[in-house]
Simulated scan of single mutants.
Amino acid sequence: MSDITAADVEHLAGLARINLTDEEVARMTEQLVDLQHIIEKVQEVATPEVPPASHPLVEYNVTRTDEVGQVLDRDAALAGAPDHDETRFRVTAILGEEQ
């Protein structure tokens, strides 16, 4: 990798619409070059046997399996509805127009 220059930082700042002073550009350039060297060091020791990870501990989402349970039939569901048309719930229009 080539080192990051102040011109690169100014270009990226312009793309991000961030106004940086000359001191900020110099400090950011130095920090990004340091970060680039750290990344190069990590790439030297990274091996194909070790998969990339975003977290040091492997985590799994624990979920239960889906099981068919007792279901409510249409008549029972509509029995408690204040208004229905024998097949579905009837509600007032929320957009101010009846359809």
Rank of each mutant, 00 (worst) to 15 (best):
M1F: 14
M1Y: 15
S2D: 15
S2L: 15
D3C: 10
D3N: 09
D3V: 13
T5R: 09
T5M: 11
A7Q: 14
A7I: 07
D8Q: 06
V9N: 05
E10F: 11
H11A: 12
H11V: 02
A13T: 00
A13N: 03
G14F: 05
G14L: 06
L15G: 06
R17L: 04
I18G: 08
I18C: 15
N19L: 06
N19I: 12
T21W: 03
D22R: 14
E23D: 15
E23M: 11
E24D: 15
V25W: 06
V25N: 09
R27S: 12
M28I: 11
M28D: 03
M28Y: 12
T29W: 00
T29G: 05
Q31P: 01
Q31W: 01
L32F: 12
L32V: 04
L32N: 10
V33N: 13
V33L: 04
D34S: 04
Q36V: 07
Q36H: 14
I38W: 05
I38D: 11
I38A: 10
I39E: 14
E40P: 04
E40L: 14
K41V: 12
K41I: 11
V42G: 13
Q43N: 11
E44D: 11
A46R: 12
T47R: 10
P48Q: 07
P48C: 01
P48R: 03
P48A: 09
V50R: 14
P51S: 05
P51G: 00
P52N: 02
P52A: 06
A53E: 11
S54I: 07
S54M: 05
S54H: 08
S54V: 07
L57V: 07
E59R: 13
V62R: 06
T63A: 11
T63W: 02
R64S: 07
T65E: 11
T65K: 09
E67I: 08
G69M: 00
G69H: 02
Q70I: 01
Q70Y: 04
V71T: 11
V71F: 10
L72S: 08
D73Y: 00
D73H: 01
R74S: 04
D75P: 04
A76T: 14
A76N: 07
A76W: 09
L78V: 00
G80F: 01
G80H: 02
A81F: 04
A81R: 03
P82H: 03
P82I: 01
H84Y: 06
H84P: 04
D85Q: 04
E86L: 05
E86H: 06
T87D: 00
R88K: 06
F89M: 02
F89Y: 03
R90P: 00
V91H: 02
V91L: 10
T92E: 08
I94D: 09
I94T: 11
L95D: 08
G96Q: 02
E97A: 07
E97I: 10
E98V: 07
Q99P: 07
Q99M: 02
